[in-house]
Amino acid sequence: MSQALVLVAHGSHLNPDSSTPTYEHADTIRDTGAFDEVATGFWKEEPSLREVLRTVESDEVYVVPLFISEGYFTEQVIPRELRLDEWDVADWDSDGISADVATYTAEDTGQTVHYCGPVGTHRTMTDVIVRRAETVTDDPAVGEGFGVAVVGHGTERNENSAKAIQYHADRVRDTGRFSEVRDLYMDEDPEVDDVTDFFEVTDVVVVPLFVADGYHTKEDIPEDMGLTDDYRTGYDVPETVDGHQIWYAGAVGTEPLLADVALERAADAGADVGSAVADVREATQVAAGDAGGDHAPASEGRADDGRAGTEADD
């Protein structure tokens, strides 16, 4: 019985960077050989969610949404477009952040589809946030003397969004590794605009819980925090703001370890992934003593080419 993994994501009509992390995580998982097929599908790109299942020939398909929280896309759009006609959100039996898997037969292809909860609410997403802090500081031992801000949209559109942020902020705090940990939001208090007010320590790693870099992570948040007056002119990592050193990490979804969360989702749903989880964890870790030079996000953080989209709402 062959098995396929399908990563589904939003994508964009305007911003090619939107789908880049999805492709990269798919490649990482494909290279593990854990699945006979690994495919990607998008709401705004191709193959569409409507047609992605027919691009894989396997009978058993594990679908993992590269979304941060449970909500409109994971509960309505994706199951509808995949033609999981029997879908009922109650089958996830979730409190808003605990969706695991529900299994259906796709109406058009007859495949058995294990529809998993989003990567953003999986417990191992916490590890990706920590890994993101290591990556942006180029220090695999980063922790003591550093604060971490986990940044999300807030509840304006979806109450589960803030739940996911709080969940991971609590878990990062519980590791005891960092001096201070806060959850901050774009459209409600505590606001990311005032990030320096919330930390005693000088160095603060700011990790937006977004799947891909786009308008919010490249333009809004850097300007709101005062990293720059104009996102097009860029900023340094770290950047000095009000006496603090702000290590802005960009979208957590671009961290290579996110591939591991997708694998864990599929494994939790019953996929046989062999040693792939451990393999990905090892392959994506930050090498000790690899520091030095300007860090990539300093340049990646600049969306000066005018291509960044503003499609967050659709």
């Binding site: 191709e46 193959p47 569409s48 047609e51 992605v52 027919r54 691009t55």
Partner: peptide, 11 residues
């Protein structure tokens, strides 16, 4: 071909 033109072969 399926990478250039996704799902076209299946359809």
């Amino acid at each position: 071909v399926e990478t250039f033109y996704p799902a076209t072969v299946a359809n």
